[in-house]
């Protein structure tokens, strides 16, 4: 193609007609190769520019530049269009079924009993209770004798005990932790303890040889039964909800006097009596009382000057109630189908 003989306007017209026929990526590539590559037509025409007489050079150069701009713009637009087409096509062809199960097994979970323990600790925090730990393998002194339960007292029947071969016991209640704290002396004593306790009995759906308890003790001058009942009522309303009814019945515990049993209205019958509550309409969920003067004396406190109270409940039972689990055993089965639901 000789530049000097070309009518660039005609070339442009012809090119425009040709461009209208271009639709595929291959067409664009051919166009680029034929016109815009190093060996392409446009490059060759620009090389011939030097042979054009000076008076025509500006006009011819402008014509060539016009062609170049036309082609480059066309190619650019086509490339963008083709890329967009490609993306769209590709997007249409790709599919991930998001309804398939996720592979991430999710967050883990804290055991329902731990959750209950934390909730109780949270309720007690504004009163300044310190959470303390104690041994599960205990001496009879801390588990019974110091708590006004001498050998051969009928109360020892209430707590079938595991005796170890080396003369110790598995603690039957977290009250033993209370005894250890009282032994440290000082006032006020305001401690809570959570943990495992053991009872040597045949297991069934609602009785376990190991379960969990919580207990608090508060010793200070001037504490009364009214304070104890007020605090328990507060704790139970926080745990069960303000609408639940709370009442108290007399109980016997060797380490407290007076002793009381806090009850809440039955979840199922709301107090009218049903098989779940044995017809009573109420469920005893805790034990409590004023610390017995023999226990105070045992740890060097003067019962005429200091009083105090203790309150304990089975956190396992509470956890099963809150989780909607009918049998205590289920809590200790560690069935992950259940635990995951709480995650």
């Amino acid at each position: 193609m000789e530049l000097s003989k070309l009518n660039l306007s005609e070339v442009k017209e012809s090119l425009l007609a040709q461009l209208k026929r271009i639709s595929t990526p291959q067409d664009v590539e051919i166009l680029k190769r034929d016109w815009l590559s190093k060996e392409g037509t446009l490059k060759l025409l620009f090389k011939q520019l030097r042979d054009i007489p000076a008076e025509r050079k500006p006009e011819v150069a402008a014509g060539l530049n016009d062609l170049k701009q036309l082609l480059e713009q066309f190619v650019s637009e086509q490339e963008q269009r083709l890329a967009a087409d490609l993306r769209e096509k590709s997007a249409r062809s790709e599919f991930v079924d998001l309804s398939l199960p996720s592979r991430w097994s999710g967050l883990g979970s804290v055991h329902p009993i731990s959750l209950v323990e934390r909730r109780i600790a949270e309720i007690l925090r504004p009163f300044g209770f310190r959470n303390v730990l104690g041994p599960e393998v205990e001496t009879e002194y801390y588990c019974f004798d110091s708590l006004n339960i001498p050998p051969h007292h009928p109360a020892r029947d209430m707590q079938d005990t595991y005796y170890t071969a080396n003369g110790l016991v598995l603690r039957t209640h977290t009250t033993s932790v209370q005894a250890r704290e009282l032994q440290k002396g000082g006032l006020p004593v305001k401690v809570a303890s959570f943990g495992r306790v053991y009872r040597n009995e045949t297991e069934d759906a609602s009785h376990q040889a190991m379960f969990h308890q919580f207990e608090l003790v508060w010793l200070e001058a001037g504490l009364t039964l009214s304070h104890l009942m007020g605090l328990i009522s507060h704790i139970l309303k926080e745990l069960y909800g303000k609408r639940r009814k709370v009442k108290f019945v007399p109980k016997f515990y060797p380490y407290t006097e007076p002793s009381i049993g806090p009850q809440v209205d039955c979840t199922f019958c709301k107090g009218s009596g049903c098989p779940a509550c044995g017809g009573a309409g109420w469920v005893t969920i805790a034990g409590a009382g004023m610390v017995h003067r023999n226990v105070l004396r045992e740890f060097g406190y003067d019962p005429e000057k200091v009083s105090g109270f203790a309150f304990g409940l089975g956190t396992s039972r509470l956890a099963s109630q809150f989780s909607g689990i009918s049998a205590l055993k289920t809590l200790y089965d560690n069935d992950l189908r259940l635990l995951k639901e709480r995650a």
Binding site: F127, G128, N131, S226, M229, G230, L231, P250
Partner: peptide, 20 residues
């Protein structure tokens, strides 16, 4: 026991440290 007038013991915001 239902006749006992309940009272709440005093609050204490000296929060003890967490145990081990």
């Amino acid at each position: 026991l239902g006749r006992v007038k309940l009272s709440l013991p005093p609050l204490d915001y000296n929060l003890p440290p967490p145990n081990d």
